[in-house]
Nucleic acid binder design. Sequence first.
DNA 1: TATAATAATGAACAACCTGTCGTTCATTAT
DNA 2: ATAATGAACGACAGGTTGTTCATTATTATA
Lengths: 205, 205
Amino acid sequence: MRDRNTDLRIIRTKESIRDALVELIDEKSFEAITVKDITTRAKINRGTFYAHYQDKFDLMTKCEDEIMLEMSKIAKQNFPGVLTAFETNSPTATLFPIAVLIFEYLNEKSGFMKAVLGPKGDLSFQTRLKDFMWKTLFGNDPGALIKEQNLLVPGQYLASYIASAHIGVIQKWLDSGRKESPQEMARILSTMSINGPFFAAGLKK
Amino acid sequence: MRDRNTDLRIIRTKESIRDALVELIDEKSFEAITVKDITTRAKINRGTFYAHYQDKFDLMTKCEDEIMLEMSKIAKQNFPGVLTAFETNSPTATLFPIAVLIFEYLNEKSGFMKAVLGPKGDLSFQTRLKDFMWKTLFGNDPGALIKEQNLLVPGQYLASYIASAHIGVIQKWLDSGRKESPQEMARILSTMSINGPFFAAGLKK
DNA sequence: TATAATAATGAACAACCTGTCGTTCATTAT
DNA sequence: ATAATGAACGACAGGTTGTTCATTATTATA
């Protein structure tokens, strides 16, 4: 019985394919990349690529799914603690630790994340990431953090606002070389989301 | 001497090319669209397309540039008034009118904007739009709205936060059928940016 | 309205990319 | 040692790209 996941040839091939993808996204946009580009860079036969992936989109989706799964795990493991702490403490104190964990994970996977979230990356991933953020943090019906009746604006716009803003900051952090620590980034995001960006800009109070 | 901009044949051809582009982005992603797709849909010869544009990217860029130019005009015409009013009034009152104008323009060009900002659209346009937003609203050195010394967070992250958040809300508005009026959308964005998204969510105070 | 100007067409082209074959060869189990 | 497995390879047909050119249709203008 052979295991597709332990065959060294497969592991080597898949790794070089994914490394080539990240390298190429830095050089040209994802849409401009051809399967031939990838296989040439990865030094494998083009037919071998099709033995593992349907096309470049399948490759991209599988890379993205791995990332989403990991982030989902981080969120699910720490969300119960957040929910109970939320009763007594301020939103700052409760959401801060989870934000730090996410930034630490992004830091670890920064090569791929920078490529896929960058200006030459994959737009559909951002859409999926926004949906994911909203569902994991605020979508759990029983213990939802946000109640519809408390909203001052329609929920869908609040969701878009927060998710897009956070992804935007993550993009900037990755793109400018990750000079701030995960802790510092979590503080920056908290400041803007809790007090509002205009307050953080010194335009208020 | 004949004018390329008034020849009815050219106007007709260009219009049908751009209409075809918007239609096709609704159906498949921009990267999946071929020049052949566009010319078939526009009912013109493929050679004619190359007489007007270098390739599909050239077409997209030229469409985007027109939009950016118009938005730039709106911003430049109204910015002086905003600056003077800003000394005495609150940020709400001063930035509100300009936001309404922008939403009215987006409403007018909603077909193209929905396509290009949507999940199948063009990622590089979003990047350009963020840069544009920041430069027009906060980048004018002499009378900058935001002073570096007042910031509670690094300026680059503040810029990314606000720009991404606003574009995210615009995307949601376009994607969900533009049910709210431009005035209502301006109010929603102001509420979240001035009091903060957490306050707007009923999570604070 | 007649005419000169020129935009659009259809066809052909080489070059390239795609997805899918059957074949070869290294690895592994017996 | 050897047979079975399946990963990697080379080659194929079909489609797209960007270009060119002679021909046709449409437009602006005198």
